[in-house]
Amino acid sequence: MKRRDFLKNLSLSAATLAVIPTMSFAADEKPKGSNALAYKDALAAITGGKTPEPSEKVSLKVPEIAENGAVVPVTVEIDYPMTDSDYVKAIHIFAAKNGNSRCIDAHLSPANGKAMLSTRVKLGETQEVIALAELSNGNFLIASQSVKVTIGGCG
């Protein structure tokens, strides 16, 4: 069967539209939304100006290359006790270059048994993802990793 005959045989009702992939260009001023909060301001508001200590106790798992900025898996686990007297009070996740840098804060208690928070975030562009752990003794531990966000391919 010739290609043209084949096409005629297809039971098509709708006209075909050529779909050109949308290309986005960086605008001068990107809208950031009503919750816009830069990362350094968000961090300072939580730590009260105290400097968080970069720590290997904070395990931050994010992909180095995100296959899709709309769903980026993030898992934070803190290697720290969860006893009544000494525990991780909160885990905060930030995306440094998102208009609103905050993603989620989980306020934990010893009843969690283990300090872990896992979710999926949106990343507008290639950027650092940061995990901050707030300890019951008032100290802060921090870890970050860069995530490369690629343009979507087919659909």
Binding site: L7, L10, S11, S13, A14, T16, A18, P21, C154, G155
Partner: peptide, 17 residues
């Protein structure tokens, strides 16, 4: 979705093809 992105006429759901 694949047909649409590859610029092929989209075949209806449930059609013989």
């Amino acid at each position: 979705g694949c047909m649409e992105n590859a610029l092929l006429a989209v075949i209806p759901l449930g059609s013989k093809e």
